[in-house]
Write a protein that binds this DNA or RNA. Structure first.
Ligand SMILES: [Zn+2]
Ligand SMILES: [Zn+2]
Ligand SMILES: [Zn+2]
Ligand SMILES: [Zn+2]
Lengths: 131, 131
DNA sequence: CCTTGATCCTCCAGTAACTGGAGATTGTAA
DNA sequence: TTACAATCTCCAGTTACTGGAGGATCAAGG
């Protein structure tokens, strides 16, 4: 299949597929006579793996590591497991940070009764160092 | 005061202060004879405002808008209020997305009993299209 | 007076992960 | 034939800084 089809099949943009090849997440695809990339079903699976990992927030570099494990069937999976655990922890930290922001933003929003900028609790609240 | 002091006073890196000037969040600071930037107390306040807004996740462009309101004391604050409300909504969306990731990551991690990559629930789980 | 070390200056390149576009081919169908 | 879709290869732009090179300037100590 050509690039457009694998892109559609995996919910990836054509440009992004080419980009993944460029950075080495996908091996350089064999080309047709006229130079078009040709993909096989295994490539779809690999791309699904990549997209899914990216969708879970793994960085490209993390995806690279996960693929390495996936590519070596006999390898101990503990590297992947550690990676996933660490990533989970970072996701949880992000959640906490966003929840803190959320609380402060709710407080700010409550401090606004309308009116002019001078009297606005949002503007005023931002001007103060701490919440 | 010079740039190092305002940076320290606001928890900003010197380079970042210059960057804010470059992109117009801070007005070009007047210079000393030898060309060094000189700041006044009002600049500290402005920088605190910027840093606080950035800390709450507002984009630079949003901060610019907030500053515009703040700079026009008689202006109705509704633009700022809308901005804050919309931003709050986006933060909440991000939280939800991260919580969904978290759930999937927890599921993935549970699916790993150790062993080889072939049998690993993490690798296997990533290969499948849906969770 | 001179030297040191801390600050400051101006560029400029790099980061993450794509995204979109220009300009040129190629493939296909009416 | 003519049109239109899909593909190709560059390459620039996005966000919000961060760090560094190479070169002035300043204050303090000797
Ligand atoms: Zn991660
Ligand atoms: Zn208000
Ligand atoms: Zn926002
Ligand atoms: Zn495992």
């Amino acid at each position: 299949m050509q690039i457009g089809k694998i892109a559609r099949a995996t919910g990836t943009k054509v440009n992004t597929v080419r980009y993944y090849e460029e950075i080495g997440l996908l091996k350089p695809a064999p080309r047709s006579q006229s130079g078009r990339r040709i993909y096989a079903d295994a490539d779809v699976e690999r791309l699904v793996f990549i997209r899914r990992a990216r969708g879970l927030g793994f960085s490209v570099s993390e995806v690279r590591s996960l693929l390495e494990v996936s590519d070596a069937p006999n390898r101990d999976c503990k590297d992947a497991a550690n990676l996933a655990r660490n990533h989970l922890r970072r996701v949880e930290e992000q959640i906490e940070q966003l929840q803190a922001m959320r609380q402060e933003l709710i407080g700010l929003a409550r401090a606004c009764d309308g009116g002019t900028a001078t009297d606005c609790g949002i503007i005023g609240g931002l001007a103060r160092k701490s919440a």
